[in-house]
Simulated assay, not measured.
Amino acid sequence: MTTPAPSIATTAPPVISVRDVHKSYGRGSGRFDALKGVSLDIADGESIAIIGKSGSGKSTLMHLMALLDEPSAGAIALSGSDTATLKGSALNRIRNKTFGFVFQQFFLTPNQSVLENVVLPLKIAGVGAGERKRRGMAALEQLDLADKARNKAVNLSGGQKQRTVIARALVNDPRIIFADEPTGNLDSATGGVVEDILFALNRDHGITLVIVTHDEELAAKCDRRVHIKDGLIEAVAA
């Protein structure tokens, strides 16, 4: 009788891995070092807050992790693959397929309908009109906005605009959502609703949630809090 070989446990690589990342702007006497050697791993399905004052480097770090910018030095890996190899259309395809974005400023086209704003990532990805509408309406229904599909974005309240932004972030079924001050322009009650939606997506759908904020109460709801100061990680707390 042959004895079966023992199984070998494997550990999945972090969904995002940042290794000794530096980011500088300008040259010579005008050079500004926004990040000065940051290393961080984010697990698949984790919620993490990056906290810091204005100018600390927190938004720069998010932009690099979201592949919206390139580091001056260091490496960023996505599920174990070095992102430095991604260029042009391959980079755009990975970014569009993998990430969803929720920003404080909304970035909606005011005179387009809510549905047109939501399906923009699908249009960029070359998805056909019928499928765009189906997936866009499904995302709006998830955010209780289906009845606003034909409304122009300019006519929405602040809370409705942010829910529209979340629907747009979800329409491509992303693995990771980056949220930059997602409640910064909202009153506390509406901000609480938006927070509940984001954490429900993380909890119920396993979407990794990366929140950039200076709001300690919002950060406390995350699995981990990464404090950044003067371009360096100062502390990491669970």
Rank of each mutant, 00 (worst) to 15 (best):
L120W: 06
K161A: 01
L64M: 06
A5Q: 13
A146Q: 11
A153W: 01
A5G: 10
G231V: 07
M65D: 01
T98A: 05
T10G: 12
S54W: 01
A200N: 13
A238T: 15
I94R: 14
S29H: 12
T98F: 03
V154E: 13
D173F: 10
S113V: 05
P182T: 03
R93I: 09
G37A: 03
H22P: 07
I228D: 01
K123T: 15
S39N: 07
N117L: 05
A220R: 10
A189G: 10
G184I: 00
L86K: 06
G30F: 11
E141H: 12
G57F: 01
G30N: 14
N111V: 14
A34F: 01
D180H: 09
R175D: 13
G100D: 02
P4L: 03
A84F: 08
A90R: 15
A153C: 07
L122M: 08
G55N: 00
F99P: 00
R27K: 14
F178E: 03
D144H: 12
D223V: 08
R31W: 04
V226T: 03
K87G: 12
A90T: 14
L67M: 15
K229R: 15
G206P: 04
K221Q: 11
A129D: 12
S24W: 09
T164A: 12
G136I: 05
T190S: 11
D215T: 08
I207Q: 08
K123Y: 13
D44P: 11
P182G: 00
E217T: 15
P6I: 03
A125C: 02
D41M: 04
F107Y: 15
I51W: 06
S39I: 03
S47H: 05
R163Q: 04
K221S: 10
P174K: 00
G30C: 09
S29F: 11
I50N: 09
F32T: 15
Q112C: 14
L218H: 06
G191Y: 06
D82M: 10
V102S: 04
K133A: 14
L209I: 00
G158R: 02
P6K: 07
A66S: 08
G55Q: 04
L186S: 05
L186H: 05
H227V: 14
A9M: 12
I177M: 02
E116R: 14
G55L: 07
T3C: 10
R19Q: 15
A66W: 00
P174E: 03
R27G: 13
T190Q: 09
V154R: 15
P13S: 00
T2R: 13
I207Y: 04
N202P: 00
L35A: 03
T98L: 06
K58N: 02
R27V: 13
F199L: 02
A153H: 04
V226A: 05
K229T: 15
R225D: 10
G45H: 04
D223A: 15
D230W: 09
T183W: 08
L115D: 02
I207P: 10
S59A: 03
R95I: 08
S188M: 11
A167D: 05
A219F: 00
G52H: 05
L40Q: 01
E234A: 12
R19N: 15
T11A: 13
Q162V: 04
S157R: 02
Y25S: 05
H227N: 15
G130I: 10
T60R: 02
E216Y: 13
S59F: 06
T2Y: 11
P71G: 07
P71Y: 00
S188N: 13
E181I: 01
F106K: 01
